[in-house]
Nucleic acid binder design. Structure first.
Lengths: 214, 214
DNA sequence: TTGCGAAGTCAGCGCCGCTAACTTATGTAA
DNA sequence: TTACATAAGTTAGCGGCGCTGACTTCGCAA
């Protein structure tokens, strides 16, 4: 075994992050491929992702993935699922910190939503839209529903506490719609076409106030 | 020449819409391929579109497109460009009918925007997001900018005529953001996860009123 | 120790994007 | 009218990809 290489979690891994091929069995190829897929999707976008690339990254032949996954689609589904879980975790953390039902919690959630879109636009595109086959998959639908329902619930909670006459869920959906639209137009650079240098944060704050009626 | 076939625009065309291969030269392969691409993208989505399919549809070999287009990407760019031009034409028609600067014009534009998304979701996804390479192309950027700038201008026009203190462009951008978000969440079936059976029209009307302050 | 099953490899199929070299048809100029 | 230049097709083929079936290696449990 070369000195430039270490064992991590039972598998051989070289310093550059690529897997080494000195043992016949990999150790945890399934997880390695998922991680490689996520990394490649984030950096190149799902439309430029090839399973063969992930295999090269993991140091196995292109036939190996099929011992762990049905097809290419299944790996993308798992990455998508984790994206929703991660988004839910991020928003839940924001809510916990600010206190459920507070305005600060709602604003933090919005920022977390936008941050996900901005820092990982390719993952965000995978989760929302793009490939409609993905969203019909069971695990993706479940994780997505869990995540989005949480968002809407939390916003509804705040609005109910304000004791407004309006339907709380409707307001929550409008807020989500607005923030989502801003996230899409921002990462797709559509604002640049019409209003270069636009302060999107300010736009969102203003729109949110309109919808919340504050 | 078989009786079941007619010549349209100088090219041989069979009754089923597929091109016939009885003459060496096609007539207008360039246009045929663009139309085939648009039809296939609309029906199957850009991620399932193959140039080879378009070739089969047009009745030529897979090498033929390269006499007319740089690569597969260029055809998609043209389809995308036409999508923006079509959207602009639809909104312009709506404005013309209702009268520029009126509330009715703004509402019609919103409906036209949404109708494009709902009736041609795959084309809408091609135009907004998905493949970031497309939008950097010159012709797409130009058509997109022209279309979106028109939208924002028209909304701004209405708001200015209302004589409101608020920045007209900001309000226009908020309105666009909201309608765009609704269009995305609707065609990607994300509303279904959280609020099945939601009346999206009502949601948009309500949100628009919030933003316009009416 | 052995043998079975999980997890790899290898070889290969069909589809795709794209190219080089060749062929056919068409419009133009002598 | 004919000769030719060239636009617009075809054929053959390369490399990459997703995926499969048959084979091999290895770890674990009896």
């Amino acid at each position: 075994m070369a000195a430039s290489q270490e064992r991590v979690g039972g598998r051989a891994r070289a310093d550059d992050g690529h897997e080494r091929k000195d043992r016949y069995h990999h150790g945890d190829l399934r997880e390695s491929l998922i991680e490689a897929t996520e990394a490649l999707v984030r950096s190149k976008g799902a439309e430029h992702f090839s399973l063969a690339d992930a295999c090269r990254f993991a140091g196995v032949t292109t036939a190996a993935p099929y011992k762990h996954f049905r097809d290419k689609q299944e790996i993308l589904e798992i990455v998508c699922q984790r994206g929703f879980e991660s988004l839910k975790a991020a928003t839940a953390a924001a809510v916990e910190k600010a206190g459920a039902g507070t305005l600060e919690a709602i604003q933090s959630m919005g920022r977390a939503y936008l941050a996900t879109a901005v820092t990982q636009p390719n993952l965000f595109r995978l989760m929302f839209g793009q490939n409609s086959d993905l969203k019909t998959a069971g695990i993706v639908d479940e994780a997505g529903t869990g995540c989005l329902a949480y968002l809407v619930e939390q916003v509804s909670l705040y609005i109910e506490r304000q004791g407004r006459a309006e339907d709380a869920q409707l307001v929550a959906l409008k807020l989500w719609t607005f923030v989502h639209g801003a996230a899409c137009l921002l990462i797709d650079h559509d604002y640049d076409k019409v209003a270069p240098g636009l302060d999107v944060e300010a736009l969102i704050d203003s729109g949110s106030r309109d919808i919340l009626g504050t």
